[in-house]
Amino acid sequence: MHRIWAIAENTFKEGLRQKILILLIVFSIILIFISIFLEPFALGESPIILRDLGLAAAALFGILVVIIIGSNLIHKDIEKRTIYTVITKPVKRSEIIIGKFLGLLLLIAILQCAMIVIHQLVIFIYEGSFDLPLFITIPFSLLEIMILLGILMLFSSFSTPTLSAIMGIIFFVIGHASPDLKLFADQINAAPLKYLAYGFYYILPNLENFNLRIDLVHKLPIFTDQIMFSICYGFIYTIFLLYLSIIIFEKREFK
């Protein structure tokens, strides 16, 4: 456990030094402020827009950080040859994968919390009260980030950072189009296409499971069984991806 923690801590510290983080925090602040100046045009819809834009920005920046840092997580260590002294220590390769995963996840979790806190402050300044239920989005966007990070680690365990990043973006887009894919599969008549569409629907991660934005912004009820399902789904999918990454990473040479 201490070995996993050592690697996680190093990953966390390394992520902290990257300037993109500061940049993204600045960007998220700017975005939230923009939503305030939207008010004159919003015709009374501004509370909704403020929430929707703020949450969307926070989620998007989380995704951006995970793709930028995550796609480089393993490659950088190999390219810079810093991995040599790690691999030759009495450490399992699975511990390296899990440590890096947890380190970056922790960093993004803190970033997400910080962005939501800023968002709350803006809402408070604006409306005189907080909208605390919005904090519920954090664990859910982290579940989505876990899956995406799993995908990035899987691809970077054998391919380049560019390909990993592209795959991350593709999975992100398809993952959010998942309900449409199902609709498409339901309606189409040509059998091969239908099964192909169902195949993709069931194999690719359904990231819309973690999207509570609409429910929260419009204050719709959220059901516990839906939440339980999302949590189990997120964990099982992530564990599966990490397991595959470890199998590939164990075979890898460091030339």
Binding site: A6, I7, E9, E14, Y84, T85, V86, T88
Partner: peptide, 29 residues
């Protein structure tokens, strides 16, 4: 692995860590 100590050729290490932090991580590993 427990019995090997390895110094790579023209070694590259995590530049963002201090000497102390670097040895700390390696001690834990």
């Amino acid at each position: 692995k427990k019995r090997i100590g390895f110094l790579p050729e023209s070694p590259y290490f995590y530049e963002h860590l201090t000497g102390y932090e670097f040895l700390k991580i390696n001690a834990l590993l």
